[in-house]
Structure formats: structure tokens, C-alpha cells
Amino acid sequence: MTDWPKVRLHVVTGKGGTGKSTVAAALALALATEGKNVLLCEVEGRQGIARMFDVDPLPFEERRLTTGLPAHGGKPGVVHALHVDPESALLEYLSLYYKLGRAGRALDKFGVIEFATTIAPGVRDVLLTGKVFEAVQRNSRNKGATQYDAVVLDAPPTGRIVQFLNVSNELAGLAKVGPIKSQSDTMMTLFRSPRTAVHLVTVLEEMPVQETHDGITELRAVDLPVGGVVVNLVRPQDLTPEQLTGTAPERIAADLEGAGVDPDPDLVASLVTEGREHAERRALETSQRTLVGELDVPTYELPRLPQGVDLGGLYELAALLRDQGMA
């Protein structure tokens, strides 16, 4: 059972350095089970998907990426990927809605497309989110396109997520009427509906947890649906509370002797310092975990993988997300 059975669009955001792109990729793999088609989108121009899955840089075109996480002995689904850039999104928009095929490409050669997407950031975000909206809610204009059971968006960081998704408000001073205004209003009906969830990624440190709290407050203030919080890069807790407090030099020296190691004073001092730093880190993580628990949203935890995140690691994280009910 999943905590989000009605959600079609999973938006993943988080403070820089928390691993939101990794979580988005793992979530896409977790969702692509039992024959489901999932689209993993990125909009920040970093080609992060290509690096994580070790494939060539993605064009503005939906590409089959890999199979999803198998479940219950059934056939796994498929993860597709899409790298969205505003210039290509505008050309597609002109082609689909205004039939400006060659004319649109001519505008691109003269730099009009780049000018249009640079001069008005609100329009840029409408184009980026508009392509994601089109992937979720396919219509007859895009004939033959793949129908997806879910779309996962690797979105901008938490500090910009409200501005990015609240496109109708961002366009208020630019377009009062017309097709772009109409499209942005239609997109907001999806973004504010139960079919969308904005998930936030954090780590157990003060600034990311505080930014997560602020992000939830800002999302709710504009009626954007808050999903869950993924606590990423969690360190193992192999030591008991008693072991954490047992960092007296005499005890460490005795333990070294018991293990047949010479209790050199420099070695003992180094181990005492390391033990105390580890205990302080654990105390900080415990306090931040308590704050995360007070956010009143579903929470999930992913470990720090000692070998780093490769494709095998992504599948491991995907399995953990599914086991915890996120997918």
C-alpha cells in the first residue's frame, strides 16, 4: 500500500546538497512497478539524470531509461526520462498550439526564443512546468505520446519551489488574459489538486530542517499540496547510548589492551576526540529528527550509502522507499 494512491505528479524539492535528485530518481524506480510507466523529469539544466544512470546527455525528448523495481513476481514497469529546457518547450508549445513548425524554428535562429524565455522568468517557469503538466495530462494534440501512470519532477530547490509552481501568481503582472494566462490557470488546477504532492528532502542538520519547515509553511500558504519529508543520508547508529558516553581515556585504553592493541597515548587521545565528536553528531541528529517528527507529514528515511550512489544504489533506495509506503 502506498501513502499517495491518488497522486500522479510527484514534485521533489529540497535544499541544495540534500540529495533531492537522487531521491527523485529512486522514487521513479519505486513507482515503476507491475507494468507501470513513469516519467522522470528534470528542469534545472544540469543533466543530473544522465549522470546518475550513466547514459548520454538527454535531449528534449522522452527516452526509455530503465526498468523499474520489480514487485510481487510481476513484470516491472519502465522509467522514462525527460530533460526540459525552456527554449525547446516554447518551440513545442508554438508547434502544438499555433502550428508554427518551421516558423517557430526560424524564430529560434533569430534568437527570439532565447530572448522570450530570458526576459520574463515567469514565462520561463510556465514553459517548464507546462511541459510537465502536458506529460501528466496528455491530450489529443500530442498524438501517439506515451501515457504515464506517474510523473516525478526533480524540481528547483526549496527556496524557489513556491515561485516555480505558483505560475498563475507569477504571471499576474505579465499576462492578464490570453492563451498563456489560460494555460497557467489550467496548470494550477492540477498543481493544487490531490493528484499532486510536493515532497521535501532534508538531512538531519539545522539549516536543511529549518528550510524544510519554512518550505512547508510557504507551500500551504498558497494552497500547494505538501507530500512527505524524506530524511536522506542518514548515518548508521551502530553504537548504543552507553557506548556513546563511554569515551573516558581509561576505558578506551583498557578496551585496546583487551583487543591486543598497544594503548599509545596519542592513539587513545585521538579515539577520545573522535568518540566525543560522534556523540555530539548523534545528539544533533536526534534533536533534528524530533523536529522533523513535529512537521505533521509522513516521513521516510534513506541511509547514506558507503559505496556512493550508482544504479545499484538507486534500486536499493527505491526498495526502501517502497517498503516505507512512499510508492
Rank of each mutant, 00 (worst) to 15 (best):
L320S: 07
A259T: 09
M326V: 04
T290M: 10
L190V: 02
R304M: 07
L96I: 10
D264C: 09
T118M: 08
A81P: 00
S182A: 08
G275N: 05
G178E: 05
D255I: 02
V7M: 05
D214N: 07
L174A: 03
V151P: 00
V198L: 03
G312W: 09
K99S: 05
V152I: 11
T217W: 00
V151N: 11
V152T: 09
L174K: 04
V136W: 09
Q137M: 14
E257I: 06
P263K: 00
G101P: 01
M187R: 05
A254I: 07
H83C: 06
T67H: 07
L311M: 12
G308N: 13
V84R: 00
I252H: 05
S168T: 12
L224T: 02
D54V: 06
D185E: 14
E42P: 02
L58D: 09
T273E: 13
R322T: 10
R102D: 15
K109T: 11
A269Y: 09
E257H: 08
L204M: 13
F53Y: 04
D255Q: 10
G130W: 02
I119V: 15
Q47P: 10
K131F: 07
V23M: 04
R105E: 03
G275I: 07
R304H: 14
G144T: 10
R64Y: 06
M326D: 03
V209F: 10
E87P: 03
P59G: 14
R289D: 13
F53M: 06
G45M: 12
K143V: 05
V43R: 00
N142Y: 08
R46T: 15
L204R: 08
G35I: 13
Q183A: 14
E294G: 00
G111A: 15
L284D: 10
N37M: 11
N166A: 07
V198W: 01
L96H: 15
L29K: 04
K75Q: 06
G312M: 10
P263C: 01
V162Y: 05
E42Y: 00
Q237I: 04
V234L: 07
R304E: 14
D255M: 13
A50I: 11
L291E: 12
P57S: 08
T212Q: 03
V297G: 00
Q288L: 12
Q210T: 09
E42T: 05
M207F: 14
L39T: 08
V123E: 01
F133W: 15
R281D: 08
P265H: 05
A116N: 02
V78D: 02
T67S: 12
P241L: 12
T118W: 02
E242M: 12
R281I: 07
H278G: 00
T299K: 02
P194C: 11
L233Y: 08
Q137E: 10
H10A: 13
F53I: 06
E277D: 08
D255R: 14
T13A: 07
R63L: 10
Q147I: 12
Y98K: 11
V112I: 15
L295W: 01
R192D: 00
A155G: 06
G16K: 06
D262T: 10
D108K: 12
T217L: 05
M1T: 14
A106E: 13
E44G: 14
V84E: 04
E205C: 02
L9Q: 02
G16M: 12
K109C: 09
P57W: 13
A319M: 04
S270E: 15
L302D: 03
F110A: 12
K176G: 04
P194F: 11
S21Y: 06
T245A: 12
A145L: 09
Q307S: 13
L291F: 01
L171T: 06
H199C: 09
